[in-house]
Simulated scan of single mutants.
Amino acid sequence: MSITDKAKNKAEELAGKAKQAVGNATDNESLVAEGVAQETAAHAKQAGEHVKDAGNDVRDAFK
């Protein structure tokens, strides 16, 4: 996973957390749900990148 991908995913995760916090503070359930969805998407991207990295590690071990 490149540094750029890590930064983008982390920024998306933090944006989702911020939306949740603002939604909770303003009693806006829609914004909370949007934040949860955004954070979940960022976690899924991070997991996908970890799987790719693991695959590359396995491939490199057999070279």
Rank of each mutant, 00 (worst) to 15 (best):
S2L: 06
K8I: 13
R59N: 10
A7C: 02
A47R: 06
A54M: 08
A11F: 04
A18Y: 09
A18K: 11
K8H: 06
A61K: 13
D57R: 14
N9C: 02
N24R: 14
V58I: 15
K6Y: 11
A54R: 04
K52Q: 12
V58A: 10
T26S: 15
Q20T: 11
I3V: 13
I3A: 14
I3E: 15
K52H: 09
K45S: 10
V58P: 00
A61D: 05
G23E: 05
A44I: 09
H43P: 00
D5K: 14
A47G: 03
D27A: 13
E12F: 00
K63F: 07
A11P: 01
T26Q: 07
E49T: 10
A41S: 12
D27S: 13
G55P: 00
K10E: 12
F62A: 11
V36E: 15
V36D: 13
K17E: 14
A42Q: 05
K10N: 08
F62T: 09
G16K: 02
Q46N: 11
A7Q: 10
E34H: 02
K8A: 10
N28M: 05
A44M: 07
G55T: 08
A33K: 15
A61G: 03
G55C: 04
A41Y: 04
E34Q: 15
G16V: 07
G35T: 09
A42C: 04
T4N: 07
G16F: 03
L31A: 11
V22I: 15
E34R: 02
A47C: 03
A47Y: 08
D57A: 15
G35K: 06
K8F: 07
F62M: 08
N9L: 06
L31N: 01
D60V: 00
E12T: 09
K17H: 10
Q46C: 01
K63R: 09
A54Y: 10
A47H: 07
V22N: 03
G23T: 04
A41N: 09
S30I: 11
V58G: 01
T40Y: 05
D57K: 15
A21I: 10
T26C: 05
N24A: 14
L31R: 06
A47N: 07
K8S: 05
T40D: 13
E29D: 15
D57E: 12
A42E: 04
A61Q: 08
N9H: 11
Q20V: 13
N9K: 02
A21F: 07
E34W: 02
E13W: 12
K45W: 03
A15T: 11
D60G: 02
D57F: 12
A61C: 00
A44Y: 03
A42G: 05
L14P: 01
A18H: 07
K6H: 08
A25I: 04
I3C: 06
A37T: 11
Q38I: 07
K10T: 11
A33W: 03
A7P: 00
E39H: 08
Q20L: 04
K63M: 09
G48N: 12
H43F: 06
A54D: 05
A33E: 15
Q38L: 13
L31G: 02
E39V: 03
F62H: 04
N9Q: 13
D53G: 10
E39K: 14
K45Q: 13
R59Y: 08
A7F: 10
L14C: 02
A7R: 11
I3Y: 12
Q38W: 00
N56M: 10
Q46W: 04
K8D: 08
H43C: 00
A18I: 10
V51Y: 06
V22Q: 04
